[in-house]
Design a binder for these strands. Structure first.
Lengths: 219, 219, 219, 219
DNA sequence: AATGAATGAGGATTCATTCAT
DNA sequence: AATGAATGAATCCTCATTCAT
């Protein structure tokens, strides 16, 4: 384990490498990106890579962990604690789509190279799923979320939809603006989570208001 | 291009290699699977690989193309030409989920190594999307599918949902039986495609009848 | 573990590599000899090295094991089963010196790079010591070897003397012919093993006769 | 050449590095010991190494030279100028064995990595041999040393025996106390140097007396 | 068709040494 | 004197591909 204590200068250097790697991994895949490409992109010598990271995979893990952490922060920040569960679910959903779209390259790589770091990835999705599931259970309790389907499945439906649309957006199969995209996904999520048209409409309205009144803090 | 004319013996040999490769790719990813692993698994000598395939990527392409072809056949076979578009959409959806689940390993690999064969993959999904989109347009015309959203987005919603659930099923995050799974996905798809509860219910019923009366030919 | 079954052709190839490696190791040391030097010397491509050996150290181990085996065979062949223990000790001693001198390069390398293969080396010397010790015990029983010192120490004295003189000969500090050298070592060994001048002289005479009558089967 | 003038503080620092290096070289060999290991063990920064030494090999040379110097001092100190040559030879022999045993780690390293500093090493052994040879010639002149063998060979016998036993002791193949060990080596040396039992016995006695009366100053 | 030895470009990693601070 | 980040040549090893048999 590389546990070096870093000066602010060092942290910056390390970040340069992480950024360069993230971009290259996203562009060409993990296996196809050579360490020498990363250091070249960062404008440093080959050896320096191993000053900051144990090896290529370690860097990848760090990247995966970090992006997951940021996504989760974003989701939390987007939720209005006083709002009903369904609204918070939609807020989180929109935040996720937005974040994933804005960090598309990062997420591409997570998708592509799951096998090397499957533990990190799996933990990430697991976390996401369980966060969503908890909200759904809460929503089912207060009646805003349908209980026609078990919470587990609904959670998968929401998380899956988010993931899939982010993927389509990333791969250029959707040409919508970010707002249009997240709007659509929110409508989809609302439809998945409740069959009560009225509740769905109101929740989407509340979502809209929260976005205008208190815009999601940017990534 | 390897366009060799094969005897039946030769075709069998080639299939052994394809099968071994499919399994290994699915288990460890494309990059991590070595040609020597494939030939070892198939029980033949290293050199023989290049008798049947130009190189590793060519084999992968062949695998990807083949699986796509089979999926499309399955979808077509599941659809009842006389049924309304929405019902056919659901039939196709169920067929897709079933096929993907039954061929989980094959699809894992498509997911994993997009970059080397992105054209093949992209074509496959494109095909799938456009098939679905055509049905949706038809459904919007005959009023069974909502026109509150553009056909493109609805197609993405359906295909995405299928893909995502297959993924979750593959990675073991869903412990449902295949029937339960496809039933849920069908309900989800119905909810995405129409907001008319009545139509949705009837279409799902029709789907159920078609499954019982004429069970989807198995893969 | 590389357990490849080799054809006679393959065995030859492997031997080429072993020979080249032995020479280079002896000339420049283990660490300073690169794999590429070895394959260059053997006139084959780099990759072939790893067809026959797992890695550089594995080759070294093989070399060490083999040379030990050959030395032991040589010693055994030199001993006249019907001769008294002391004579056999001298015969073995002479055989060892001769063998080590003739295979000087091999032994240099054993000396130099003990650490990487200390288990192999230690076993080799252990074996040698215990062989000699057994003969000494026998000699002490029949009175031809002094019992003024414990057998262990005497064994070390003999083996050590052999090793040291081989070393001096190898490193060019002794300019004697092989016969002169082995003669001297034999006299030294005799003096170490017995304090009875008469016995010593007779044993050396017997040694001489055995060398003339039945020359040591040559390595 | 690094000819820096050192303050007493600096000299201490340098010694720390030398000590750390000596230990590590002995433990793992020269090649396997990295500069970073040395500075870590000494608790200083990497760059400092090159303040005190030109490079890794220079440090090794310094180590080798130093240890040789100390051995020679020890030998000289152990000899009783008024004693006959044979006695002095035995005194020197005992001193050598003792010193080598007490500085076992240092000598291991000399043995292991001869190639890089062969000139230093060779000079050292050469010196030792020629010191011993001179004494033997003197002994042959005054009749205490046998002239049945040339002085060169006898010198090699003595020096070799010392070296070999030190080696065995170092590598743990001899479990004797230092006194027992040096006693045995002395008896061996005596037997090598003279065939006159009487002279041998007397010389060993003289040796013993000198050790009791004026114990060899410890290293 | 089949074998498996042979090739060699390519990539990850190490580590002695330098240098700005 | 001292630090530790930075450099880059060097080296081991892998593996897709070729080829003689």
């Amino acid at each position: 384990m590389n546990d070096r204590q870093l000066t602010s200068q060092g942290a910056e250097r390390k970040q340069q490498l992480l950024d360069a790697a993230a971009r290259l991994f996203a562009e060409q895949g993990y296996a196809a990106t050579r360490v020498v490409d990363i250091v070249d992109a960062a404008g440093v010598a080959k050896g320096l890579f191993y000053w900051y990271f144990d090896n290529k995979e370690a860097l990848f893990r760090e990247l995966a962990t970090e992006i997951r952490r940021r996504l989760r922060r974003q989701q939390a920040a987007a939720m209005d604690d006083s709002a009903p569960a369904l609204v918070r679910l939609l807020q989180g959903t929109v935040a996720s789509v937005t974040f994933m779209a804005e960090n598309a390259p990062f997420f591409s790589l997570l998708e592509v190279e799951g096998r090397n770091v499957s533990d990190v990835l799996r933990q990430g999705t697991e976390q996401h799923l369980s966060d969503v599931r908890a909200l759904i259970v809460e929503g089912q309790a207060d009646g805003t979320v349908t209980d026609a389907e078990p919470a587990d499945l609904l959670a998968l439906g929401v998380v899956g939809t988010v993931g899939q649309f982010s993927h389509f957006h990333r791969t250029g199969r959707i040409q919508l603006s970010l707002e249009e995209l997240s709007g659509y996904v929110a409508r989809l999520a609302a439809r998945i989570l409740t069959s009560d048209e009225q509740v769905a409409r109101e929740s989407l309205l509340a979502l809209r208001r929260s976005q205008v009144g208190a815009p999601v803090p940017g990534a």
